[in-house]
Design a protein around this nucleic acid. Sequence first.
DNA 1: TTGACAGTTCGACATTTGTAGTGTAACGTC
DNA 2: GACGTTACACTACAAATGTCGAACTGTCAA
Lengths: 134, 134
Amino acid sequence: MSKKRKSKKKPASMTDVEWVIMNVVWEHEPCAAGTVQEALVKEYDWAYSTVKTTMDRMVTKAFLSRKTIRNLNLFSSRISRDDAKRGELQRFLGRAFDGALTPMLQFIVDEEELSADEIKQLRNIIKRADRQSE
Amino acid sequence: MSKKRKSKKKPASMTDVEWVIMNVVWEHEPCAAGTVQEALVKEYDWAYSTVKTTMDRMVTKAFLSRKTIRNLNLFSSRISRDDAKRGELQRFLGRAFDGALTPMLQFIVDEEELSADEIKQLRNIIKRADRQSE
DNA sequence: TTGACAGTTCGACATTTGTAGTGTAACGTC
DNA sequence: GACGTTACACTACAAATGTCGAACTGTCAA
């Protein structure tokens, strides 16, 4: 898309498929494509080669790194889960909430029907943060 | 991507470009492609035809509707801003937080450096929700 | 009526994405 | 050392995306 303004380098965006794969890699790294495919086949029935191709591409995109041992490709993540989450949050906020955080929470509170329990949890989270910031 | 399980119909996902355009449409609808292009040219320098083509495609995808008056195409949104936000939130949570809300907020509180003011705002939002749920 | 304009339609093209088949090379086993 | 099993590398291909240019058309004022 390419905005005109400069922006502090943030992790490139991942597609849905890539997220699914990354989530497995973070759990199992370093791991082979077969491992990932097997972990996912119950939910998504992708062929081995589909997963492998995607992972190869993710190496090019620098989401993954590859280490070859003998006949085996071992993949590892090149971005941390937290960085990826941060990037995703930024993009999400940017798209839908003009980048602002509190409107987003406001929206959630207003629009999603939160259970009393969830509200309690949220309150606790905030409370803790609040205390810590003093 | 297509998961194996069924899922309640939720709005299809929009690309970044589509979000940018939608945000303008929501502000100005019903509006012409030229209006949108002009509104965006300062930030993104897309040619008129780029915007127009994208909007045409968005009609096909049912994000927009088109009404032709004489020589003019007037576009309107077919999904509400809130629905789009809801969908986006779901996708965001699904990708990065296994669909769960509180871990997401936890993450924000832990990882983003929130200003004291932001924390206060958050607390107020929650407090209000809390009171309301009783 | 003739431009100047604004807006349209259509086609085009390079990339990226989703998805996978195939032939091949290495591995472990009997 | 032959053989079945794996995992790999390579190729393919349609659909979606990002991006426009060119040619055409309707409108309105001079």
